[in-house]
C-alpha cells in the first residue's frame, strides 16, 4: 500500500513538473502581473484622488529649445505657489527631445482660477532670462489640462511661452 502511495506521489510530482513553466516565462508573467497591478492602482488613484470634477494638471513641453535653456519653473495658482521644479540637464534634454513633463496635479474648486507660470533660464546669447505667463480659466465638471509650451520664435530669435488648454474628451 505504501509503495502505491509513493508511486502516486511521484506521478503527481512528475505531472506538476510537466505543467511547470520555464523560469523565464514564469518570471515574465510575474513581472506582467506587477505591471498590471501598478496600472490598476494608478487608475484608482486618478479616480479617487484626482477626479475630473476637481482635477487640474499642468504639463511642460518645448519646441526645439534653441533660444532658451530651462533652469526652473514656478507655478502659482491664484497667486499662491503650488509647485516649483529645478531641471537637470537630463530632464531638459528629455523635454527638448519631445517628451512632456507632468509638472503638477492637484484639486481645485469649481469657478474661475488664475494660473501663472514663471520660467527661469538662459535666453539667447546665454543671458539670464525670466518670463511669466498667465492664464485664467473656469473650472467646471471636466478635468483641466494645461500645457506650458516653450516655443522658439524665429521672427525675433526669442523664446515664446504659451499656456495651451486641452480637453480630455
Amino acid at each position: 500500500m505504501k509503495v502505491l502511495v509513493c508511486i502516486a506521489l511521484l506521478f503527481a510530482s512528475l505531472l506538476a513538473r510537466a505543467d511547470q513553466l520555464p523560469v523565464a516565462t514564469e518570471l515574465e508573467q510575474l513581472k506582467q502581473q506587477v505591471i498590471q497591478l501598478n496600472r490598476e492602482l494608478f487608475l484608482l488613484e486618478e479616480e479617487l484622488l484626482f477626479p475630473p470634477q476637481t482635477q487640474l494638471a499642468v504639463f511642460v513641453s518645448a519646441d526645439a529649445g534653441q533660444f532658451f535653456q530651462l533652469d526652473s519653473v514656478q507655478l502659482l495658482l491664484n497667486d499662491t505657489p503650488v509647485e516649483s521644479h529645478l531641471y537637470t540637464a537630463q530632464q531638459w534634454d528629455a523635454i527638448k527631445r519631445g517628451a512632456i513633463q507632468p509638472l503638477y496635479k492637484g484639486n481645485i474648486k469649481a469657478g474661475e482660477h488664475h494660473l501663472t507660470a514663471v520660467f527661469v533660464g538662459k535666453g539667447p546669447d546665454n543671458r539670464d532670462y525670466r518670463r511669466a505667463v498667465s492664464h485664467t480659466f473656469t473650472k467646471a465638471e471636466d478635468a483641466v489640462l494645461l500645457e506650458l509650451q516653450i516655443n522658439d520664435r524665429s521672427s525675433d530669435y526669442q523664446p515664446d511661452f504659451v499656456v495651451k488648454p486641452w480637453s480630455n474628451d
Partner: peptide, 15 residues
C-alpha cells in the same frame, strides 16, 4: 480647449 492629441501619452512615456 482642443481635444488632447493621440501622442500625449506617448510623449509622457518618453519623459
Amino acid at each position: 480647449s482642443p481635444v488632447i492629441p493621440d501622442n500625449w501619452h506617448y510623449r509622457q512615456a518618453a519623459w
